[in-house]
Amino acid sequence: MSDTAKISLKALRKTFGPKVVLDSIDLDVLAGESMVIIGGSGSGKSVTLKCILGLLIPDSGSIKIDGTEMIGISGAKRKEILTKFGMLFQGGALFDSLPVWENVAFGLLAQRLYDRKDAQEIAIEKLRRVGLTPDVAFLNPAELSGGMQKRVGLARAIAADPDIIFFDEPTTGLDPIMADVINELIVECVKDVGATALTITHDMASVRKIADHVSMIYHGKMIWAGKKEDIDHSGNEYIEQFINGKAEGPIKMEILKS
């Protein structure tokens, strides 16, 4: 399976001092598939994403993108491979020193793919794609609401028509209606671009809307993987507790009681 996988993780391990955050993670994401990784806060979801992107260096294991090993790869080669990626950050991570259109077109300008005039036109088109009007293009990110910032982040993620798009907690901090709008946009945009999507979230509404396949991380280990349709009858007590949001179950929250 891993031979044809767009993203393939094998025995990925990452520690911070004595704390083991990722413990032998295996994951395959096929081309065109939408994979969602679920798990509680601090379970290692974001670290997995950052290891794939090269923002963190794993202690051991393998990360392959289109069959190319990413660990130990040269900076130039990594940069070339990163041009295949789009990423929607949890907080938007918009550059507040730049107007919205330059945020959206940043990757296009950085790769010298277009001049500023053409890049601006593409940015406005991508903003329209996520339901924002052209006048938004000339505002600063600080002038936008949380939902609009997410949409701008989404427009930036799809601006260069990437092969792979990562979504880090795409609906965190949004009201349920805006969260659903963002989920719909993610599904549409991923289909439009024909990209492979990897999302991390603990929002089950997002999972049901976005996912083709679901994996669950708990305490740095991948404890379940399967199709979205199987999640409600997985037979896994961790999954059942998580999707039903119950305090009682095998997942223990680390709460210090006085």
């Binding site: 041009t83 990423m87 990757g107 950085a110 990562f166």
Partner: peptide, 14 residues
């Protein structure tokens, strides 16, 4: 702290 530097990296910018 707002991940803007990480975002630069993902946008192929050192």
């Amino acid at each position: 702290v707002t991940e803007q530097i990480d975002a630069l990296t993902t946008l192929s910018t050192d």
